[in-house]
Each structure stands twice: as structure tokens, then as C-alpha cells.
Write a protein that binds this DNA or RNA. Structure first.
Lengths: 140, 140
DNA sequence: CTTCTACATTGACATACGTCGATGTAGTAA
DNA sequence: TTACTACATCGACGTATGTCAATGTAGAAG
């Protein structure tokens, strides 16, 4: 690796007066990269229109469960593709799989999405993004 | 295109007794693909650890704004990469850009994330996934 | 046993994504 | 003007992602 980060606070600026760009100097990111990776994985699982429709379709059932053959038709996707997306949603914690006989029934994990929102609210500084229901509050 | 969807309800099953797989028959997905695409775009913008840390870093400033040179150092990313991620976050509606002099100051859009969660709650059937105690008292 | 069904997994492909170096574009300062 | 700074954009590269045809696996029915 020959990547040398720019490191603005370590550049020997010839004149100390014009380097006023960085004022408060946030420094190291408050959100640890480990937590960010976990969060990003969940968001990435939701970052596909077909997966969102899979979630919606499964949740639309009265028992909030569906097998694969229920999902290939409405989404107009092949069976391997649906299985792939379902696996991603299961790995992300949004769905659970239960085999009954020959069929695999997928059901939604009740608090998964709200927990994700709660994580977004509580994850250190990102919580500041969540308050202020209307954009007319923070004058400070 | 030679893709022929399996169409479970249209398969001529030789015996009508073992095709009990599809019970409630969710049918067409309740979440329209248009809304799903918009939602997926926003989730996709959040589906990267570096972009989440960019959001957190910007929000950590007392004025909730930062210029690019503030962000290349802490995230250990090149300046073009940071600009690219910031553009994605701006396009998704999570950040705004304001040019003051030579610098571009990025600030968070106050209600963007909570609006995304609200969309998740209200988007047709996906709201059933959210009915857990905490974060929103969304009355009808 | 064999055969069928429902689903998972594999392999392959095209596309999208993340990253960086190089270059372009404003703005500031002399 | 020239020179420098902060940032955006372009081009390229490697990798990840979405999709499907083909194949594998496990249960049910005969």
C-alpha cells in the first residue's frame, strides 16, 4: 500500500494564518468503524428494491410468513434470486427461516427494523440527526 | 428474454392436494416498486461504513457542518473519495452543501433520517414490522 | 427403491460500487 | 496577471452485487 493519507493537521503549512479552514476539528470519528460496519450491513440489506418488496410481501401475509414459491411470482424473479435475497435478509436479522416439511417459511423478525432505527438514534453522535422533528428548531 | 416465471398459481398440478404450499396468496406486492426504489436508494446511501462515519463526523461538530478537508484525515480517505461519498449523501437528501468562499461546508439535514424511519413505518405493509413500543407514537 | 417437489447452492455473467490518481474549476492573495 | 488553495469531476482499476441456468439436497409420495 502506498496510500499516504493527507492528514491535514500534520501538514506543515508555510503560513499559519491561511489554514483556518478546519475550525472545530472533529478529529477521530465518534462512530467506531466496527459499529459503522454492522450498521452499514443492515442498511445495505435494505438497499435493494426487490428486498424491500420481499419484506413487504412477507409482512402482508396474515401470519407474516411466506415460502419461496409465494415470492417468485409477485416479484417476477427467479427462484435462486429470491433465495439469495432471503438469505441476505436473514443474515441481516430481518427475517427468520423455519423449515416445515418440504417448505421453508420465512417470517419477519418483529422488532428488527425499529431496532435499526433505534440504533441510528443512539449511535453516539448520529443521534443528533434524529431529533428535531421539523426543520425549524436549532438556532443555537 | 426467455425467462419464464414459475407462476405457482398457474402451474397445472397433476394432483390438487399437494399444492397446498401457497396459502394466503399475497399476490402482487403491496409496496410499489417505485416507492421501493426510492426507499432503497436512501438505504443504499446509508449502506456504507465510511458514509455513516461521514455523517457522524459532520454531526459531531457543534454547528453540525464540516468541510471536506475536515473529513479526509479522520476517515483516512482520499479527497476525491470523500467528495464522492458526500455527493451520494447529498443526493439522498441527508446532507446539504453550502459554498462559503473557497470551502464547501456540508451540514446534516435535520429530519432526514427520522423521515426515512417514518417512511419505513408508513410504507404500506412494512409498517407492521415496526409495531414495537419505542421510537414513534405514530397515531393514525 | 424411484420420482416429484420445494428449496439451497454453485458457477458464470453483466453491472454497479468504492477507491484513487490526474485533471479541471472556482475562489483567494500577492 | 500568476500562484496557491479547496473542491469537483474524470478515467481507470479491482471488487462487490444482482441475476439466472444448472446442479445439488432433503423431504414426501408412490
Amino acid at each position: 500500500m502506498t496510500t499516504i493519507p493527507i492528514s491535514p493537521s500534520a501538514m506543515g503549512d508555510p503560513a499559519g494564518d491561511l489554514s483556518e479552514c478546519c475550525g472545530p476539528t472533529p478529529g477521530a470519528p465518534k462512530l467506531q468503524s466496527e459499529s459503522a460496519t454492522v450498521l452499514a450491513t443492515k442498511f445495505k440489506a435494505l438497499g435493494d428494491a426487490n428486498r424491500l418488496m420481499l419484506l413487504a410481501t412477507i409482512a402482508s401475509g396474515e401470519s407474516a410468513e411466506a415460502c419461496v414459491c409465494d415470492l417468485t411470482g409477485p416479484l417476477n424473479l427467479g427462484q435462486p434470486t429470491v433465495s439469495h435475497h432471503l438469505k441476505i435478509l436473514v443474515d441481516a436479522g430481518f427475517l427468520t427461516r423455519e423449515k416445515r416439511g418440504t417448505w421453508s417459511y420465512y417470517s419477519v423478525v418483529p422488532g428488527a427494523l425499529s431496532a435499526l432505527c433505534a440504533d441510528l438514534c443512539s449511535e453516539s453522535v448520529l443521534g443528533d440527526l434524529m431529533r428535531t422533528p421539523d426543520p425549524a428548531e436549532r438556532n443555537a
